[in-house]
Computed example of a mutant assay.
Amino acid sequence: MADSHDYKFVGWMGLDKNAAQGNMIWQEFEPKAWEETDVDIKITHSGICGSDLHVLRSGWGPTPYPVCVGHEIIGRAVRVGNKAEGGIEIGDRVGVGAQGDSCLGRTQGHCDECASGNEHFCAKHVGTYGSFHLNGDKSHGGHALYNRSPSHFVFKIPDSISSASAAPMLCAGITTYSPLKHFGCGPGKRIGIIGLGGLGHFGVLWARALGAESVVAISRKESKKVDALKMGADSYIATDDHPNWDTESAGSFDLLLSTISSSNMPIAGYFALLKRDGTLAQVGNPDDGVFSVPAPGLIIGRKRLAGSMIGAPGEIREMLQLAADKHVKPWVIERPMENANQAIVDMEKGSARYRYVLVNKNHL
């Protein structure tokens, strides 16, 4: 390695599109060159996200293989630069989410997005994996033994949140928390969460924690109804099993959060569920990035289609505090890090209920 430390960066590397079929290879990789603003993390937990699958198969564009995916990272700080932010000290339990860097005004003197606390919308946004840092080095994620990240995007984890629970909060959690908070989820609001997977189940948990008047889970089949109610949903709509779901519940919701990554979702029906001036916020991103929007669905009732992606560092800290205060606990299944390939395959099958987290047992 180019810098001095007594540990190696070793992880599950995707070498080509076949990696998404459970063919990642365990091998050493080169992290970004050390900077005094960085933190090295000895990884204990790494959540598996749908983004891992998209990137492993080059679903969102060509992936710069080889790549180590995983952007729901929890571990202990083992090296902290002398210019690191956030008061992080060696031994602290910390986490890293889906963003690994932004310009922070370094490349152009000023950045409106970074200056306003919207770093995730920075034009120089760097993903935690499959991207390139401002120094040109490739970013690698957390299905590994160690991770190196700029301290601005490293977060202390509240003591009351377990590492297995905290890991998926750093992508799935913030991806749903941010739009719910931004678009007004809270007392007096009727909220619908579309899709009850890793993202959607967080949507139900956050909507309840934010004090929504009513939370309704919306999924294709009746089979997840019991789970949804246990998570805190007040009721459940199964769009495949109830032919008149859109007319029976028309005009019922102030805000719908869609976590579906499909080009074929029944979006006209979703618009029908909204009240006048209601909002459909989309966070799911299909591989082709395209779905059709019927103009009447927007025009009639002055409804809005909005989008959202992950969240800024300030929002992540706010979310973690809410989780600690409200005892939010996602539904997580822990899997050994050495079984990452099988976990990836099971994730693709939709077997997770509702989030897999890889665990380095020798780092606990």
Rank of each mutant, 00 (worst) to 15 (best):
2 A>L: 09
5 H>A: 15
6 D>A: 13
10 V>A: 10
11 G>R: 15
13 M>G: 13
15 L>A: 04
17 K>I: 15
20 A>T: 12
25 I>R: 07
27 Q>K: 14
27 Q>R: 13
37 T>P: 10
37 T>R: 14
38 D>A: 03
38 D>H: 07
39 V>T: 09
43 I>S: 03
47 G>P: 01
51 S>D: 03
52 D>C: 07
53 L>V: 13
54 H>F: 08
57 R>K: 15
58 S>L: 12
63 T>L: 10
69 V>T: 13
69 V>S: 10
72 E>W: 05
73 I>W: 01
74 I>C: 15
78 V>N: 13
79 R>D: 00
82 N>I: 07
87 G>C: 07
88 I>K: 00
91 G>I: 15
91 G>M: 14
93 R>G: 10
94 V>G: 12
96 V>R: 11
98 A>I: 06
102 S>I: 03
105 G>T: 07
107 T>E: 11
107 T>N: 11
118 N>F: 15
119 E>F: 08
121 F>P: 00
122 C>W: 04
122 C>M: 09
122 C>G: 09
126 V>D: 07
127 G>E: 14
134 L>A: 04
134 L>S: 05
137 D>Q: 04
139 S>N: 14
143 H>R: 00
147 N>A: 15
149 S>E: 12
155 F>Y: 15
155 F>R: 07
156 K>W: 00
158 P>C: 13
158 P>Q: 13
158 P>M: 15
159 D>G: 15
161 I>E: 14
165 S>C: 13
165 S>T: 12
166 A>Y: 09
167 A>F: 06
169 M>V: 09
171 C>K: 06
176 T>L: 10
179 P>H: 08
180 L>W: 06
181 K>A: 08
187 P>M: 08
190 R>W: 11
191 I>N: 02
193 I>D: 08
199 L>M: 00
199 L>K: 00
200 G>Q: 03
207 A>P: 10
211 G>E: 11
212 A>T: 08
213 E>M: 14
214 S>L: 13
215 V>F: 10
216 V>P: 14
216 V>N: 11
219 S>L: 08
223 S>M: 09
224 K>Y: 04
225 K>D: 01
228 A>D: 03
233 A>E: 01
243 P>Q: 09
243 P>Y: 10
243 P>L: 07
245 W>D: 01
257 L>T: 04
263 S>F: 10
274 L>I: 13
275 K>V: 08
277 D>L: 04
278 G>N: 05
278 G>M: 09
279 T>S: 01
279 T>M: 02
281 A>L: 03
282 Q>V: 14
282 Q>K: 05
282 Q>T: 04
284 G>L: 02
285 N>E: 05
289 G>F: 03
295 A>F: 11
295 A>G: 11
298 L>E: 02
300 I>C: 03
301 G>T: 11
308 S>Y: 10
310 I>R: 01
310 I>L: 10
311 G>M: 02
312 A>D: 15
313 P>L: 00
313 P>D: 05
313 P>Y: 03
319 M>C: 09
319 M>Y: 12
324 A>K: 06
333 I>H: 10
335 R>I: 15
336 P>F: 14
340 A>L: 02
343 A>M: 06
344 I>E: 02
348 E>N: 12
349 K>L: 15
355 R>T: 06
358 L>S: 02
359 V>L: 01
359 V>H: 06
360 N>I: 05
363 H>T: 00
